[in-house]
Structure formats: structure tokens, C-alpha cells
Amino acid sequence: MSLEIVVVHPDLLGTYGDGGNGVVLAQRARWRGIAAELVDATSGVALPTGDLYCLGGGEDAAQTASAERLRAEGALERAVGRGAVVLAVCAGYQILGTSFAGSDGRVLSGLGLLDVRTVKGNGRRAVGELLAEPADGRLPLLTGFENHGGLTIRGPDAAPLAEVAAGVGNGDGTEGAVFGRVIGTYLHGPALARNPALADLLLSWATGRRLEPLEDAEEAALREERIAAARERRSRHRVRYELGSSS
């Protein structure tokens, strides 16, 4: 039996390269001898049944269209009810919440799979390296690139995925949200290419197996470089702030 990995609506939520998360999951499964099937589920067809679902970032109009389609279909909620694993990034993360802000400021209903709601930010988009310390101490630092205008407010049923070490994330010092086997995050990069340990956590949830480690030398080199870049950016901001406030 092969692991079914479904990339949800790549035609609508494929703007930020997040389709790569599906590729990373499928390859990391195959490299361990676990058969994996990667399915691109465009918005024109019924959402197939899968073990693992990936949602990515997208533009405002596409986000609205994807959310409406998923809400009307109900298939993702049913899959989660059956125990499927979900990783949702940026616009996809916002769709999984109870509500999010459309491009015209209208409040749109999400799928309610995460107890978060996203409102329009007041001003600048958060664009840049994002570094976060996971709440689950078994995971190493999370690194990625964020690019969003929304502020995401967690309700009591959504635990944060991580605490922000550099960047913006949800907007309150936390980054992402977790409920059961559903994870939402603002990390692009794609997230799982930069954070193979997070990919393996999702795979272990989906397979119920302990996974032997992979070599990951190139991932480690990339992580080292990006983590240093995020820290350097943060310390530059600090210096600027301190210079600014002393004058």
C-alpha cells in the first residue's frame, strides 16, 4: 500500500513554490523504501483521498476560490476526521482557520480545521527570512521565508507551532499553529526543504512508523546558511533601532 500525498489546488495555491513540500515528502518516504504516490489535485477535479495533504500560498483571488471550493466539497475536513495529516502554508494556512480577510477586506469563512482567524495587517507586508523555535522541543529551529500581509490570531484550541526568533510569523511573537495532525505555517522555502525534521514528523504521523535518519548533508548546509542570514538580519534591525532611539 503506498502513501498518498496530495498537493491541494496547485493551480490556485502554487504561487510560492510550496508544491515542493509534496516532492520532499514523497522522496523522503521513497528513500526509506516506503512507496509514495504524489498527486497534484487541481481545483477542477474532486479532491482525492490521501494520507497527507499539502496546501501552499497563493494570491488573494485564488485563495478565495480555493477556500470556496474546499468548503463546498467538505473532503478535506472528512480526511482530517479520518486521521489524515495536513501541512498548510501561508494562504493555505489562513484557509484552514475559521475566517480570513479577502482582498476587498471582506471576512471570508475558512474550513475551521485550525482555531485561528486571520485579519488584514495594518500596513506593511511581512517579507523576509523567518526563524522560529518550535514549541515541540524534539524539532530543531524552523527556517523559511515569509511573505504575507495578514495577522493570524490563535484561539484556545490552536497551539503555536513555534516562537518567532527573527521575522514576524503570526504577528504576536508566535509562528504557525498545530491542532492534532494539522499544521499551519507562514514558512515558504519550501518549508520542508529547509526543515527536513518537520517533513519526517509529518511522515511519521502518516505512516505510524519511526523513521531512520537520512544523510541530509545539503539540507544541513542550507539550514546553517539561512539561519545565520536570519540572525544577521535581526541584529542589523536591532542596531538600527538602538541607534534610532538614542538620537
Binding site: G17, G20, V23, V127, G128, H188, A193
Partner: peptide
């Protein structure tokens, strides 16, 4: 563009 995520496209 400062985010090379598009490499995955």
C-alpha cells in the same frame, strides 16, 4: 527576488 522558492516550480 529574495525568495528562491520558485526553484521548486
Amino acid at each position: 527576488g529574495r525568495d528562491p522558492s520558485w526553484l521548486w516550480d
